[in-house]
Amino acid sequence: MTSLRPILASAWMGIQHDIAWTTPALSVALRVVAPFASAMTVSIIYWFGTTNSSSVAFNPERLAYILIGSTLYAHIASYAWVPTVAIAEGKNLSVFPHIYLTSRSTAFYVAGRVLSSFVISTITSVAALILAYLALGSFLGTQIPATVTLLSAAMVAAALVANIPGALGLGFLLGAYSLYASKFEWSLPGYVAGLLMVFSGALFPTSILPWPISVVAQYLPFTQFIAAAREALLPGSSGDYVTSMGLCLLGGVAILVVSLLVYFASERKARKDGVIDRRLA
């Protein structure tokens, strides 16, 4: 219980930070814009590529595959890098020194910020997915297949939760870097989003990547999370939901354990080296 309090306090602070800079409804609406536009871009690329090539045919199921993948990779990217910004911005605005002076590890603060961002990102990603689904259906004049039932929604919700350890782990790894960095950490979101685009099977099957990258990409928890969500939402999906969920959880927990060890070690060293409260390290 005593561990839960700092996490919840940080999560509440994260919600205030992320959506209270303007009216909450407007803030959430603005946060839907980027994932919506991103999902539209990749879906239109698929539509454009297939309708303007004589050798390939447009397949609405593949469009649904890309639409779901693109929304979910944006979801992971948007909350996995929160530790980076929480630490970097915290140092810059002198918030972080107050956190590190407390008796707890800063990991509690970081975890709370990630959880709040997860909640916001889940809402905005689902809204972006629905909006893109409707907009694409209207612009492209096609019916995009999707199974939307109470069961499939519950399965997607379970997949979103199962992905938390992996994304939190990625966040802690980036956060460990941010404890030391003071210049380049702002570029990390671009790298995270870009890497997820290429290696998480969000837009295309990982099997098209060269070996052994394809094997590593296939077993990333993020790849398995997106696969599980597709298996829940796409009718006639060939994958196995339970296996994807199992691999997602297993890989996620492994990444989280390793990343926590790295973060604690980095935090200890940063305190020792005296860089933890420096704006320019």
């Binding site: 297939t50 303007n52 290429v198 837009l203």
Partner: peptide
């Protein structure tokens, strides 16, 4: 890779 994977 997306263009490549769909054959375009």
């Amino acid at each position: 890779l997306l263009y490549y994977s769909i054959g375009a």
